[in-house]
């Protein structure tokens, strides 16, 4: 059969060709590099190794949240609750760990040992994730509505526990360790290491595991996925639990870093996590995107924000700059993909 011969030949050509995902990731990475060079021209002392590293390390929290959010987006679901979970788990970890018998209500906690306090705080985070899964999967309510609700619920509980303020007294000494300890005799802090390890695990899951591929199938066509025997209910439940677990850990690490539980911590982080995923080429309709792309999306957002600060622009301008970056990035991606696939 002549057809067979043709296929055999062109296949070897095609394995060298990039996938659309790789193409978009490369595009986003190039934009990040280009923006960095451009900002270096405008902002004095911007072009420094330390500054480059800071762009990533300062954003460990949002990048970590972006991992769970990206996986859910690829599966065709939103998670707007992660910012609220950050506040909730942080506040809970403080409340559970605070000693009993403080001077007032805000300095009196449950007096649990620290390990138990953070385990219970993670339980609270997972409960929000389970609630997301319950409403999205069982009751088939659109995820954007469900997670908007749980976002407010989580932050609301944090607000009640802190009485709208913060808890930062009467804490055991080990409370401040996790968020501030450095790793392997370097200045790399544990939260940054956490983010890096999480990124590597996520990339492995996305590229190399059946679990990762299931996420794409479900996002690309949920009906066909069900008719192909995929248990999408179970899978999406796992994704919500993972996302809330990551958010819970981020909340605990942030509370530890600042030695306080603050109900407004993580405000708007859910939107930053969504924005970096979209900047990184994750499709809002699902079925397309990558964690590496999301990472470079975060770098782009960080460059825009810090360059603005470096140019002594008033912080009031940050949102407008972010908006411009988002529009430009998404228009560029749509245009580039359409051109490539014409």
């Amino acid at each position: 059969m002549t057809v067979t011969a043709n296929i055999g030949r062109s296949l070897s050509d095609d394995r060298r060709k990039m996938s659309d995902e790789a193409f978009i990731t490369l595009l986003v990475a190039s934009v990040a590099v280009g923006l960095f060079l451009f900002a270096s021209l405008l902002v004095p002392n911007f072009f420094q190794l330390l500054n480059m590293l800071n762009l990533v390390t300062n954003n460990w929290a949002v990048i970590s949240l972006g991992i769970g959010v990206s996986f859910l987006l690829v599966s065709g679901n939103f998670d707007l609750s992660v910012g609220g979970i950050v506040a909730l788990s942080g506040v809970l970890s403080v409340w559970f760990a605070q000693a009993t018998g403080g001077a007032n209500a805000l300095s009196t906690g449950l007096g649990l040992p620290y390990w138990l306090a953070i385990t219970c705080a993670l339980g609270g985070a997972l409960a929000i994730g389970a609630l997301n899964a319950l409403f999205v999967v069982k009751f088939r309510i659109p995820s954007i509505i469900v997670t908007l609700g749980t976002m407010m619920l989580a932050r609301g509980i944090a607000q009640v526990v802190t009485q709208g303020s913060q808890r930062n007294t009467n804490l055991p000494d080990e409370f401040g360790v996790l968020g501030n300890m450095t790793m392997f005799d370097t200045s790399v802090k544990l939260p940054v290491a956490f983010m890096l390890i999480l990124l590597l695990i996520a990339i492995f899951i996305e590229r190399k595991t059946v679990f990762g591929r299931l996420t794409y199938w479900i996002g690309a066509n949920p009906i066909a996925a069900s008719l192909s025997g995929i248990d999408k209910e179970k899978h999406v439940t796992y994704l919500y639990l993972f996302s809330s677990l990551i958010a819970g850990i981020v909340g605990i690490l942030l509370a530890s870093e600042f030695k306080s539980g603050y109900s407004n911590r993580g405000t708007l982080m859910e939107f930053d996590a969504l924005v970096i995923a979209l900047l990184g080429g994750v499709a809002i309709a699902g079925g397309f995107g990558s964690v590496v792309g999301m990472f470079f999306g975060a770098v782009i957002l960080a460059i825009v924000t810090s360059a603005a600060t470096g140019m002594v622009l008033s912080p009031d301008w940050q949102y407008i700059l972010k908006a411009i970056a988002v529009f430009l990035a998404i228009v560029t991606q749509t245009w580039a993909l359409a051109r490539r696939n014409r």
Partner: peptide
């Protein structure tokens, strides 16, 4: 188009979806 195929994915990515056991080596693809 709506029930059988993952139209945004390639032929390669469409074929194995109904047999994950053959595709999985302890969860690794």
């Amino acid at each position: 188009r709506t029930q059988g195929l993952f139209t945004s994915l390639s032929i390669r990515e469409n074929v194995p979806v109904m047999n994950l056991r053959r595709l999985s080596n302890n969860g690794v693809f």
